[in-house]
Write a protein that binds this DNA or RNA. Sequence first.
DNA 1: AACAAATATTTTGTAAGCAATTTAATTGTT
DNA 2: AACAATTAAATTGCTTACAAAATATTTGTT
Lengths: 152, 152
Amino acid sequence: MPNRNADDDALLALSNQLCFAVYSTALAFNGVYKPLLDGLGLTYPQYLVMLVLWERDDVPVKDIGQLLHLDSGTLTPLLKRLESAGLVSRQRSARDERQVRITLTEAGRALRERAKAVPQGIFAACGLSAPTLLKLKDELIALRDRLDATGG
Amino acid sequence: MPNRNADDDALLALSNQLCFAVYSTALAFNGVYKPLLDGLGLTYPQYLVMLVLWERDDVPVKDIGQLLHLDSGTLTPLLKRLESAGLVSRQRSARDERQVRITLTEAGRALRERAKAVPQGIFAACGLSAPTLLKLKDELIALRDRLDATGG
DNA sequence: AACAAATATTTTGTAAGCAATTTAATTGTT
DNA sequence: AACAATTAAATTGCTTACAAAATATTTGTT
């Protein structure tokens, strides 16, 4: 039996609390994005995929997965929904038929203009100065990468 | 048309990036918790409910929802799963029959001992000092509460 | 060329998460 | 007491998220 005292327990409880803070902040962010994205007909993960495509078009599913930390089991149905919405097209690569490459349709490209209003609403809702925001982001990314190195 | 320059856009993109940082860190945390919780037969949200009950038993669904920022549409099926697992019991309050109160079973109380190993694994995976961890947690909670004030 | 190993995506099954609706019980008002 | 308004849970429908298995293609080895 490891000898653990009250201080140890309090310390350990802290990591539980940090995780819950991240978890509930993610839910809260979703609550702010939702009304902004509803008008575009997008969910938040779909918006993330569109952000990727607006930066670099004609991307294999695998690359989207690496950028967003999502696997194909999540992306395949999501991309099919974007396809039925007329925003992207999915086609097997001729070079390597294992790959499916995602390209924007005209409607997908056009949506970018309407999506430009989204970050303004988010920035306002955060109520943080740019430096604070930047620092928090960097700390989270560093933490995430450590967690990924352990867990996935 | 608002006149927006490149600096504005970069600033606004930052809030998008902060949200993605939170989102992907939540996924990464889940990846670390999963192998630790698998042995207990719990998912992360189920673990959160058990943490609540280990602190204070005999809690209405509504209170659990407020503490965890989850609604009844999420909690009702989750609690039913905990009930079928034999960890909790659900019963209508006699005083107010609209309420369902959740109490731990003997097995639910017993699970607490085995769950004590979980936070150690999380703390190690975070790789952060206690003060850093505490500060990050507090900043996230503050951000979350601002977001909730806007969105939900 | 034959065939094993690796790779990319899809499919299946389970569990969140939330909006909107429904049901039932309680509270408030007249 | 009658009845509207509120409240607590449950239900329905849709969209993530991921593990595990299946399918198809490519690469590596002999």
